[in-house]
Computed example of a mutant assay.
Amino acid sequence: MSMLRGIDTAASGMIALQRKQDALTNNLANAETPGYKQDASPLRAFPELLLERIHDKQDNQFGQRPVIGSLTLGVYNQETLPLFNQGSLVSTNQPFDVAINDQQLAPIMQDNKLIKPSAFFAVQSGDGGFHLTRNGQFSVNALGQLTTSNGELVLGRNGAPIMDPELTLGDVLIRENGEIIVHPDDAGRARTVGSLGMVLVNNPNQLVKEGNGLFQLEGANLGMIAQTIPQGVTMHHKMLEQSNVDLPQTISEMMMNIRQYEANQKVLQAYDKTLEQLNSIGRV
């Protein structure tokens, strides 16, 4: 039985490490994606088993069986968790690029834990779904609608898509409070065409990653869009937030992961040889 436990332990380690490697590879592939939030992939041990001697002639002085110790039957990778720390802001000089800076948001207490809120742009997918994103690499389509790089419609504070025919001209100013002004250098024609919708999520750990830089929050609706920019949050025009992937650390973790995987593989090979020898002895 102890040998089979060893096989199970090594096999569980290989499966968990494979899933962690997938998460690290995805982080590496998105290192240049604006607003991308890297995934952490923690490994957890299976619940420990308490071993006792059950065939002793007598129990100990407390009427209990003598305890041998605890046994853990391997590890598992239950989930990947996005990390929402702020990425670096870089200048792009593109007319519709916007970056969120929410570093000054104060942590709040939830379930006896300090959790830092995060701010997101509000967008609408093609099927009408309500989503959140940190990727402020926006553009304008032929209808004058402000869109994400993947075509989702960017929502304003009123919950409606931001659109104006003159947005196609690209002569805009986006203020720190999210107001979008067309023709900012023409005093006679300058006007506000809308304000970027922003959603403040008190506990970003509740968000579900959906791909393409989008997040979903259970029960989220248009009523969550803030009517004013929360204190501690600013928007920066003609800038983008880079991904928060730490390249050196990610590459280092991938190499360590591979070595750990190979170590578990060698354990399985050793057990396989031992079982093969046992079978050969049994045949003799």
Rank of each mutant, 00 (worst) to 15 (best):
M1D: 15
I7M: 10
D8N: 10
D8L: 11
D8P: 04
A10V: 06
Q18L: 06
Q18I: 05
R19S: 14
R19D: 07
Q21A: 10
Q21F: 10
N27F: 03
L28T: 04
A31G: 10
E32C: 01
E32A: 10
T33I: 05
Y36L: 06
Y36G: 05
K37T: 06
K37D: 02
Q38E: 15
R44D: 12
P47Q: 11
L49M: 11
L50C: 05
L51H: 12
L51Y: 14
L51C: 08
I54F: 12
H55F: 15
Q58V: 11
G63K: 01
R65W: 03
V67P: 03
S70E: 08
S70P: 07
L73R: 08
V75T: 06
Q78D: 13
Q78M: 10
L83G: 06
L83P: 01
F84L: 07
F84Y: 13
G87E: 12
L89G: 10
V90Q: 11
S91G: 12
S91M: 13
Q104A: 09
L105P: 04
I108S: 08
I108R: 07
M109D: 08
M109V: 13
Q110N: 09
L114E: 15
L114W: 11
I115D: 02
A119W: 03
F121Y: 07
F121R: 06
F121G: 01
V123G: 05
Q124S: 10
G126M: 08
G126D: 14
G129Q: 15
F130G: 01
L132H: 03
N135C: 14
G136N: 07
G136L: 03
V140F: 05
L143C: 09
G144H: 07
Q145Y: 13
L146T: 08
R157A: 00
G159S: 00
I162C: 03
D164P: 01
L167F: 01
G170Q: 01
D171Q: 10
R175T: 11
N177P: 03
N177G: 03
G178L: 01
I181N: 11
V182W: 01
D185Q: 13
D186T: 10
R191D: 11
T192N: 11
L196D: 04
G197F: 00
M198Y: 05
L200I: 01
L200C: 05
N205P: 01
N205Q: 13
Q206C: 07
L207E: 05
V208E: 11
V208M: 12
E210N: 11
N212F: 05
N221Y: 00
N221T: 09
Q227P: 03
T228P: 01
I229P: 02
P230R: 08
G232N: 09
V233Q: 02
V233C: 02
T234R: 12
M235R: 07
M235T: 04
H236C: 04
H237R: 03
H237L: 04
M239W: 02
E241S: 08
S243N: 08
P248W: 13
Q249E: 13
M254K: 07
N257F: 02
I258S: 15
I258R: 15
Y261P: 00
N264Y: 03
N264D: 06
Q265N: 14
K266F: 00
V267E: 07
V267A: 10
V267N: 05
Q269A: 06
Y271L: 06
K273M: 05
T274L: 08
E276A: 14
N279Q: 13
N279D: 15
S280E: 14
I281D: 14
